[in-house]
Write a protein that binds this DNA or RNA. Structure first.
Length: 570
RNA sequence: GCGCUAGUAGCUCAGUGGAUAGAGCGCAGCCCUGCGGAGGCUGAGGUCGUGGGUUCGAGCCCCGCCUAGCGCACCA
């Protein structure tokens, strides 16, 4: 139960250079010049990328390097700023540079250069926004990884959306991304599942037997048992408990995985590998890891069990790896799994998206892989916090009948994948969130999902309109786009590659929906202020149609990264 | 008790140590002779939980405290 699909390759490597990074380089060059000429003392320059000022009067970008340098250089920040400004190499992108107290260097982009970027954006189309931050490095993103013992719940949905958007983001940022689902198909929970399915099966055959107290009580197993009885009758009972029960369990698990895969598919989530926990025991990973830990003196035998001596590594407590019964714990599998990831398969980096209930597990796993000699910094864990489902002001309660979960399927059926994804993405993983079903399915201005998609549909409509009139805009002259609203739109689009880099670095997919809102707003503003198709100005019409197409490209890219559709009509 | 996370506008949430803390919704006004009004513009609304500290500069970093959620099994 370990199968592969072809790996995902990063987008075509024809990225636009990031103006942000160019400007940072210009500043560094100017500082270097100033140092050579003895105007600035020769000392280490702090890492100081240019930033985007919040006040537009301060230009498009600003450097605070003079402020940071003032103390160590023993110079007034304003003097440093002037020294840097005077030595900045020329750049076609930069329109003007000014120095502002107490020591900022402000850059304003050149309007002509800015409007010409529209051609670049249209030319890049679906790859617009991609950057080479990852430099093709392989990175594995592991997410969802729910047990194959029941359907996915809303919390899994959040992890699925976060993980898949993060994976897309990393791919756009130039990483070679591998998406993986770790299937916990062995161990204690499968034992419980086994007894639960068997009991439901016998009950479905009419036997009056007790359901295990710690069993999976959700109605989905009742349904599963009824299905099996309808399809195969008492075949498994005839085989007897020795043979029939494990066979039924395998069938049940496979049905559960089918359900999970269908839920994920409908949520727009796909994996390259479904990795079986059980395989770690068949291919020697588990033995290797135990032997290594033992060699390293990290194993301790106590009360018949084998413990990982994590207290010696600064952890709160030791943890059992092998129970006194000889059965390994989930923790042991997990160490073997990470060993397989980082050493056998050699992923330089891995990101795990885990639910809040696994938070205590993070430092243990890091300590364990460190004990194996793997740099724990190669593993990053994103913890996705709890979701509270609401209908308006009412909290949706868990039902015992459904197994004390709110099924992802129910939410998906009710609000649709796009709304589901947008809402899950718009809060940072760190924050607990409220998900309002009523708001998510409302088709009105209160719902941000529609606001963003509407902008895309509106542009598509204008472009259709232009096509019907036979308007040809591909040779439109973008330098005509000098209106304030037009320039603002280009500026906003150029923020996408920067956002992709920033969000990939910070593992922060929640920046995407916020950006999508801003881009949509900037477009709507342009649309109100600038008539796109005008009868009496052909050249301007062509230029604006090209701008509209560029905006559509940027919006579509953002929506795609979020795993949402970019509708031509609504 | 210990650990992790959160506390920012009425509500839901953004906010890479920098200039006057933002958005959406809600609220109050305003904008339709024309490309999709699921739109646009303006405004009111904030002791950034709290007390210290570091810094030229703190919503952001450090320490204490308060509140909430999650975790602290020979479960996963």
């Amino acid at each position: 139960m370990r199968w592969h699909t072809p790996p995902t390759f990063p987008d075509s490597p024809m990225e636009l250079p990031l103006i942000r990074n160019d400007l940072t380089a210009l500043v560094a060059e100017a500082v270097h010049q100033a140092q050579q000429q003895g105007v600035l003392p020769t000392l280490a320059i702090p890492d100081s990328p240019v930033e985007r000022p919040q006040n537009p009067e301060h230009g498009d970008y600003a450097s605070t390097l003079p402020l940071k340098l003032a103390r160590s250089a023993r110079m007034a920040p304003m003097a440093i700023a002037e020294a840097i400004k005077g030595r900045l190499p020329d750049s076609p992108a930069v329109g003007s540079v000014s120095v502002a107290p107490p020591g900022f260097i402000n850059f304003t982009l050149d309007p002509g250069w800015l409007s010409n970027q529209v051609d670049e954006i249209v030319a890049h189309a679906a790859s617009f926004g991609s950057v080479d931050y990852g430099k093709g490095e392989r990175i594995q993103v592991e997410f969802v990884s729910a047990n194959p013992t029941g359907p996915l719940h809303v919390g899994h949905g959040r992890g699925a959306v976060l993980g898949s958007a993060l994976a897309s983001l990393l791919a756009a940022a130039g990483f070679q991304v591998h998406r993986e689902y770790y299937v916990n198909d062995t161990g204690n929970q499968i034992e419980v599942f086994q007894r639960s399915v068997w009991a439901r099966y016998l009950q479905a055959l009419g036997e009056d037997i007790a359901f295990p107290e710690d069993g999976y009580g959700g109605s989905y197993l009742v349904d599963l048992a009824a299905e099996v009885v309808a399809q195969e009758g008492d075949r498994y009972r005839v085989l007897g408990e020795q043979e029939g029960r494990p066979a039924l369990t395998r069938l049940g698990m496979s049905r559960m995985m089918d359900t999970i895969r269908a839920d994920l598919r409908d949520l727009g989530v796909h994996f390259d590998t479904w990795f079986s926990e059980a395989s770690l025991y068949q291919d020697g990973a588990y033995e290797t890891v135990l032997a290594r830990l033992k060699e390293g003196g990290h194993l301790l035998e106590k009360e018949g069990a084998h413990w990982f001596q994590s207290t010696a590594l600064g952890e709160d407590k030791d943890n059992v790896l092998v129970r006194s019964t000889g059965m390994p714990t989930y923790f042991a599998s997990d160490i073997a799994y990470h060993y397989d990831k980082f050493e056998r398969r050699g992923f330089p980096k891995g990101i795990n998206v885990w639910g809040a209930d696994h938070q205590g597990h993070v430092s243990r796993v890091k300590a364990a892989i460190a004990a194996l000699g793997i740099d724990p910094a190669r593993l990053q864990v994103v913890i996705s916090q709890l979701v509270t489902l609401r209908r308006g002001n009412d909290v949706v309660r868990l039902s015992k009948r459904a197994g004390d979960i709110i099924a992802l399927r129910d939410v998906l059926d009710e609000v649709g994948a796009d709304a589901c994804r947008f809402f899950f993405l718009s809060r940072s993983a760190d924050s607990q969130m409220d998900f309002d079903l009523e708001l998510a399915k409302r088709q009105s201005n209160e719902n941000p999902v529609y606001y963003v998609q509407y902008a895309h549909a509106r542009i598509a409509s204008v472009l259709r309109n232009a096509a019907e009139r036979g308007l040809e805009w591909s040779s439109g002259r973008s330098e005509l786009l000098q209106h304030e609203a037009e320039q603002a739109l280009v500026r906003k689009m150029l923020a996408l590659p920067e956002l992709i880099e920033t969000a990939a670095e910070a593992l922060a997919p929640h920046l995407l929906p916020h950006y999508a809102m801003e881009l949509a707003t900037t477009f709507h503003n342009f649309y109100e202020k600038c008539r796109i198709i005008s009868e009496d100005d052909g050249p301007l019409t062509a230029a604006r149609l090209k701008l509209a197409e560029a905006t559509r490209v940027a919006l579509a890219r953002t929506l795609t990264l979020m795993g949402m559709s970019a509708p031509e009509r609504m």
